[in-house]
Amino acid sequence: ENWTMTTTWPSSLELIEIDRHFVKLANDMIPDDQLTIEFFDGGELVPAGEVFGAVESGTIQAGGDWPGYWAGRDSAFSPLATTSSLFNAIDYVNWIKEWGGAELYNEVYGKFGMVYLPYGVTNNESGFRTVDKPIRTTEDLQGLQLRLSGYEQGKLLEKLGGSQVSMAGGEIYQALERGVIDGAEFSTPNVDYSGGFQQVTKYWSTPGWHQSASVFGVMIKQENWDALSPETQEMLKVAADANLLWSLSFTEKRATEAYQKFKDDGIEITRLDDATLQNIQEQANATIEEVACENPLAAKVYASMISYLQDYAQWRDASAPFNLGRTPAGPDLAAIEGCAG
């Protein structure tokens, strides 16, 4: 089999390394007479927003993505991509591999005739970068006009007193430079640094509560997946798992380096105080309950995620301080299960 694959990331964004690494692993591992993947950088074949459509219609066989881009087709894609103040990267890995997450990816993508292999995970996004004043408390957010992507994320920001401004990625830099907006979030520190945000903002407010961790992967047209031998399918899954692990340490290392570069450039890095984070958690839980209940499939995904958190919580707490991150007090599971399809 010969596959044509592309991704949502242009060669100028470092996120494309996750896709390239997967393709290399798969091509090296799988004999050429079984499967060869020809990979094109984002934009070479279709624009980012059209990768889904190109795979769905069978024009190309595979597409690397971040599931959140497709939330306009079904809002259940949103929790498959990221959460507001809920999962960290290891939570995603745990959930995907052992708590039923993988099946839910395939259920949601399956609605559109595709198979999905999650193969990338990054931990916390940077958070907001602001021009004039730091954000340390909920109070500081009042009245701020912030560039933020995502429907759920916008709702949450409004609950906290800020206003969401929608803006194309390429326009953020200039809008910050010109004071058109007060601040913006974009991506992880390394990606932000390559976008030049250190040149146009003075303050950086951590953590990235709007996007606590992110998942990336490849969507494959069902009939192309079915045409592979079971051995080849297995090798693709192994390549995806290997890539998942690699992507986490790769991006965390790059984020660490970029964090230092932001500091060296004199950016004032502040942390939200505990009371504010507590408030954000409560508002995030309320927002999740709202948006989950707008769509039974989204509710089903969220219910599975929150069940995982509750199921894992006791042992996770018992193993503190050696546990994998904090144990969030998430939204009301029973309420969301009530709306699940």
Partner: peptide, 17 residues
């Protein structure tokens, strides 16, 4: 040829700049 339409929509119609 499907990509022709994907490209026309994404590159030209859905392009704020």
């Amino acid at each position: 040829l499907g990509i022709v339409i994907n490209r026309i929509f994404g590159d030209v119609l859905d392009n704020y700049v």
